[in-house]
């Protein structure tokens, strides 16, 4: 109990700090908002030509709004802060010397932003469903429970993945190339460019076997209610597999990285 109180207290400070940047959070939110809008315009045009495999605009609207929520609340963007400030600028040093894990530090620094992004998304979704169109969503209690589990796993997987990506700064003199590449791959294979179920079969199986679909596509499909219970359980199984792979990988890379960490800039 005492431990939990301690973490709660620490987290409050991180929240307080992030709230100093409310307007910045709004600017960051523009990215998922704009990309969602662009996607909707595209699929609005496409769905009117009947070339979309029988999915109507209502499906795409719901899909991309859930995607916006996932992109701003579940997808973690810590890689840049880890590389640029933590490792290159050496802010990591101050954290390493405190009896508090750096991973929890990164998590606590990330969560307030995800919460803010999530709040913005939900506000927009509520607005849309009241004034424009209803949004498709899961309708059963079991479905919601599984969807929430899938969402939590999605965030954890993206957090671990981005943590590993950011840790590449221990070895690289610049991580820009790698993170840009990663952004493109995520866009393609996480279901942001097009719903994975609409992809050609080969692409679809590649996408579903990579971890990126576990980060956002699976939670989105679960929230929207396009997966049956069995399918959903299988998807969560895949998420758990990725989790089992990423945790030791992250630990390994982190331990190796700290050995070559030089604490520059201090």
């Amino acid at each position: 109990m005492h431990k939990i109180g301690r973490f709660y207290h620490v987290f409050l400070t991180y929240l307080k700090d992030a709230l100093e940047y409310r307007s910045k959070a709004l600017v960051y939110f523009m990215y998922p908002l704009v990309s969602t809008t662009v996607m909707l315009i595209f699929w609005y045009a496409a769905s009117s030509t009947h070339a979309t495999g029988g999915y109507n605009f209502s499906f795409f609207l719901s899909y991309y709004l859930w995607m916006m929520l996932a992109g701003s609340a579940l997808m973690c963007y810590a890689e840049d802060a880890i590389a640029r400030y933590g490792i290159y600028r050496g802010d990591l040093s101050a954290q390493l010397l405190r009896p508090f894990s750096w991973m929890t530090h990164v998590l606590f620094a990330e969560v307030p932003w995800r919460v803010m992004g999530g709040v913005y998304s939900v506000l927009i979704m509520v607005g849309v469903s009241i004034f424009l169109f209803p949004i498709q969503h899961n309708t059963t209690v079991v479905g919601w429970t599984l969807a929430i589990i899938a969402a939590a796993l999605g965030f954890t997987i993206s957090f671990l993945y981005k943590f590993i990506l950011g840790s590449s700064a221990f070895w690289l003199t610049n991580t820009r190339g790698l993170t840009s590449l990663s952004d493109i791959i995520i866009m393609l294979f996480a279901g942001q460019l097009m719903p994975i179920r609409l992809m050609p079969p080969l692409f679809r199986s590649i996408a579903l076997s990579l971890p990126f679909s576990s980060m956002v596509y699976i939670p989105v499909a679960a929230l929207q209610g396009t997966l049956g219970t069995i399918e959903l359980l299988r998807a969560i199984g895949i998420q758990l597999l990725w989790l089992c792979l990423l945790i030791p990988l992250q630990q390994f890379i982190w331990r190796r990285g700290l050995r070559v960490y030089t604490g520059v800039g201090q």
């Binding site: 207290h9 620490v10 400070t13 307080k16 700090d17 100093e20 405190r98 009896p99 508090f100």
Partner: peptide, 17 residues
């Protein structure tokens, strides 16, 4: 913490330590 008053860092350290 750059954006917070020093007293906040102090109370944070109280928890962390």
């Amino acid at each position: 913490w750059w954006d917070l008053p020093a007293i906040d860092t102090f109370s944070l350290n109280k928890e962390i330590y």
